[in-house]
């Protein structure tokens, strides 16, 4: 027996979402089918609404439903520091830390020639254009190979135009015992130590 085309189509669409394999897609499809009509309509509308009203902030490229995002329009925030992250999710993670009250810039990716991502595919030009009164740029890209290369690339560019630039620190997880930390992280934490 074959599934009706409408169901196969739904499974296929769900399966294209990140982190969803064929089995999960099938489970989600059957789950949706068993929900009341109103719930399914609610979900469909939420999807369309989100897609229709959400866009990228014209300053920092964070996700927002206004022209400028909540961070960029907050007058309380320090305007002279910009923290560069790869994705909006990274921005949220830093916000959750509560340690940072400057602005952000979302690159929407990291350099990865294997995936066809070069400097032009990232929001690097708009970043350079907004740095007039900025006193520090914090590079908070990931510590992956791609994130490191992106940080290095930006550090060079920012060095040329003489903008003070820092890189987030790597090191020990808070509340962890030293003996359980892997050698590599510990080694980096030692070489990146600071005076107290």
């Amino acid at each position: 027996m074959r599934y009706p085309p409408a169901l196969t189509q739904l499974i296929r669409e769900l399966g294209r979402l990140p982190g969803i394999g064929p089995k999960s897609a099938q489970r989600l499809a059957f789950h949706l089918f068993n929900q009341p009509d109103d719930d399914v309509r609610g979900l469909a509308e939420a999807l369309l609404n989100a897609k229709g009203s959400l866009r990228q902030c014209e300053v920092c490229f964070n996700i927002t439903d206004e022209a400028r995002c909540a961070v960029c329009t907050d007058p309380q925030r320090t305007q002279a520091i910009v923290c560069v992250v790869e994705e909006p999710a990274d921005l949220l993670a830093i916000e959750r830390s509560g340690e940072y009250d400057g602005l952000y810039h979302v690159l929407h990716g990291a350099l990865s020639p294997m995936n066809g991502v070069g400097p032009d595919q990232l929001t690097i030009q708009p970043l350079l254009a907004r740095l007039k009164d900025v006193e520090e740029v914090i590079l908070a890209t990931a510590t992956t190979v791609e994130g490191e290369a992106t940080a290095m690339y930006l550090a060079r560019l920012l060095g040329e135009i003489k903008v003070p630039t820092s890189r987030i620190a790597y090191g020990l997880p808070v509340g962890g015992d030293l003996e359980y930390v892997d050698e590599v992280t510990l080694g980096r934490a030692i070489s990146n130590r600071r005076m107290v």
Partner: peptide
């Protein structure tokens, strides 16, 4: 090759 090749070479 683009402007980022330099960085990949350095790494």
């Amino acid at each position: 090759p683009d402007a980022a090749l330099k960085v990949w070479t350095e790494r």
